[in-house]
């Protein structure tokens, strides 16, 4: 099996320092957004997708598992959070908890099924499972089918943070994104993450060294799915709806595209990719179906000539790990 990132540098103190520096710069830039006049809704949306892409990247970039069904976690958590907030009237923090718990449960079930096959079959299975869920949500009464769950109350988080105020909501979403990002960062640099990388590089050897690789892959899948669910729950507060588009395979494809553009197996790549793709959709919205064509072309170009992605190329040029 050929490797995804051709020059994985070992985790050295210097690499850690570089990555922390970039992280602090990114956090400061994002924290300054409300003062710059940039449309906060756009940035919040991009942050949710960035977290989703980072969660996806944990699986592909570090575990070598290409999930083509990550929309199912986004959509499931979104629907469950939306239902908890609107119908049960739960406060925001519990609404998020319900969504994340649902994604956690779903990732345990789907992980148990899909981890049984590797490589290309794994991708097809995750795609088929998410399509299965799509049809279930299409027919289930609580999702309101084609209409989706709309007009979700934003409420007061912890009783004090009024999420209907854009600035407050922005910082809550940003805090959620940074927390999720740091968790993924921690996972990647943990001994668990190192084992995961070794499975990606050479699974047979990892098995021969005594690692039960299936357990590691399963745990990575559950972590990735749960974090993707967290992104879905946050997105509910931004979009104030939960709809079928979030569970559709096109959404799973977009997450793959974001990560590919930013750089598979890079820490900051998925964030950059998410901003690029969301911005592109925003600016090209008037072109209708041509957006699909452009996305397809980006896929083709990335795979043929630009496999390292934006951040991967930069990291390669400077011989740094990013």
């Amino acid at each position: 099996m050929t490797t995804l990132t051709d020059d994985t540098l070992p985790t050295t103190p210097r690499a850690m320092r570089d990555e922390m520096t970039v992280f602090v710069v990114m956090a400061l830039l994002l924290a300054a957004v409300p003062f710059t006049g940039v449309y906060p809704f756009f940035v919040m949306q991009a942050l949710c997708f960035a977290l989703l892409a980072c969660a996806f990247n944990l699986l592909i970039g570090y575990g070598g598992l290409l999930s083509f069904g990550h929309a199912m976690f986004l959509g499931t958590a979104g629907y469950c959070s939306a239902h908890a907030l609107k119908v049960w009237g739960l406060p925001p923090e519990l609404g998020i908890l319900v969504g994340v718990a649902a994604a956690f449960a779903l990732s345990i079930v789907t992980g148990y099924i899909s981890i049984r096959r590797q490589g290309i079959y794994f991708s097809m299975i995750t795609l088929a499972l998410s399509q299965l869920l799509y049809f279930i949500y299409l027919q289930a009464p609580f999702t309101h089918g084609e209409d989706g769950i709309q007009g979700i109350p934003q409420g007061h988080m912890f009783g004090v943070l009024d999420l209907s105020k854009p600035t407050v909501l922005y910082y809550v979403v940003l805090a959620g994104f940074l927390a999720g990002f740091l968790l993924i960062f921690r996972i990647i640099n943990s001994p668990f993450g190192e084992v995961l990388k070794s499975i990606r590089e050479n699974e047979q050897r990892a098995i021969s060294l005594g690692y039960r690789t299936d357990h590691y892959k399963f745990l990575a899948f559950v972590l990735s799915g749960t974090l993707a669910g967290f992104a879905g729950s946050l997105k509910v507060f931004v979009a104030q709806n939960a709809s079928l588009t979030d569970v559709h395979w096109t959404m799973s494809g977009e997450v793959v595209l974001m990560t590919l553009v930013g750089g598979l197996g890079t820490i900051f790549g998925p964030v950059v990719g998410a901003f690029v793709i969301i911005a592109m959709q925003q600016y090209l919205a008037s072109f209708g179906q041509w957006v699909t064509v452009i996305q397809g072309s980006i896929f083709v170009i990335c795979v043929l000539t630009f496999r390292r992605g934006v951040i991967g190329e930069i990291a390669h040029y400077f011989r740094r790990s990013l």
């Binding site: 699909t292 064509v293 795979v303």
Partner: peptide, 12 residues
Amino acid sequence: LLTFGIALIVQG
């Protein structure tokens, strides 16, 4: 990924 991109282009 490449054939997925091709599918998007053709369908689009």
